[in-house]
Design a protein around this nucleic acid. Structure first.
Length: 272
DNA sequence: CTAGAGGCCTGCCCGC
DNA sequence: TGCGGGCAGGCCTCTA
């Protein structure tokens, strides 16, 4: 479900409710999500929340003692609720706050994660990640260097977390459409101008999606329960067989690396 | 090293 | 109406 814009939307939504609060209790109702939920998380009880950060699609809740690391997987979501509201199905973790509210984590498919790291120590899941797409470190020069002599197709390349983080299946197809690049192009054959466009469009697509509160396809909701509005702006994702919004040719769909990929054969010519 | 497939889970949608 | 199959926004791990 959630890609970077959805995670960032969640971060912006929960931050005002969490910052400065003391954690009164942590309720864990499920032993294992993607990995077992560590008992060490209980060390955060009594700690004051200093900041809520995002790295790739991970959220980090920082306290002086340590950090809770949260990943939403495919179906995870976070809400702020009154403490008295009883948990529903798939409500796996609660962070109970001094304010009488709690942060509640729901995840039907359990592909998400809650992890813990001591203060000053980075968790294994974070150490191998590539640059953030919305920073200056992710630029034409960097991507051109990474792409040099590589045979990987560009769709899979930009979804590789070592190359750049936060570009998931929806925004990969959308960015390639906006950059007018065919998803199957081997990255080593991209021109510098194409790479420049790709970098620029990835940033633009993600930034726009964040402003719209993310993409709600089925069940993603913002922290307050409202949907995201970026779905209305999708040009190719989920539009197989429909007319391209630019040239009216029918949108193509095919699996690339086991993930559905959408493009317009006319706007994104495959020229080698 | 890389690419490709499998696996983790549940819910939902489709076709019979 | 019920049931089986296929599919889903992520990403780690194993194999060749």
């Amino acid at each position: 479900m959630p890609e970077l814009p959805e995670v960032e939307t969640s971060r912006l939504g929960i931050t005002p409710h969490l910052q400065g609060q003391t954690i009164k209790a942590i309720t864990i109702r499920t032993e294992k999500l993607r990995w077992p939920i560590p008992q060490e998380l209980q060390k955060l009880v009594g700690q004051r929340i200093q900041s809520i950060r995002r790295r790739a699609k991970y959220l980090m809740i920082d306290t002086p003692e340590g950090t809770a690391i949260i990943h939403l997987g495919m179906s995870g979501s976070l809400r702020i609720l009154d403490e008295a509201i009883p948990p529903a199905k798939h409500d796996h973790v609660d962070l109970v706050l001094d304010s009488g509210k709690l942060l509640r984590y729901n995840d039907p498919r359990k592909f998400g994660a809650w992890l813990y790291s001591e203060v000053g120590v980075s968790h294994d899941v974070l150490t191998k990640l590539g640059p953030e797409p919305l920073t200056d470190v992710f630029n034409t020069k960097y991507l051109a260097e990474k792409a040099k002599n590589k045979k990987a197709v560009v769709k899979q390349f930009i979804m590789n977390n070592v190359v750049v983080v936060g570009v998931g299946n929806i925004y990969a197809s959308e960015s390639l459409f906006m950059a007018k690049i065919h998803p199957k192009t081997p990255v080593g054959t991209l021109t510098l101008a194409q790479i420049e466009r790709l970098v620029s469009e990835i940033k633009k697509v993600l930034e726009t999606a964040i402003k719209q509160g993310g993409t709600t396809l089925k069940d993603f909701n913002q922290v307050d329960g409202k949907p995201g509005y970026f779905a209305q702006e999708l040009h190719v994702y989920g539009r197989a067989g429909k007319e391209c919004l630019i040239c009216h040719l029918l949108i193509q769909e095919e699996k690339i690396g086991q993930r559905n990929t959408f493009w317009c054969e006319n706007c994104q010519p495959f020229d080698l």
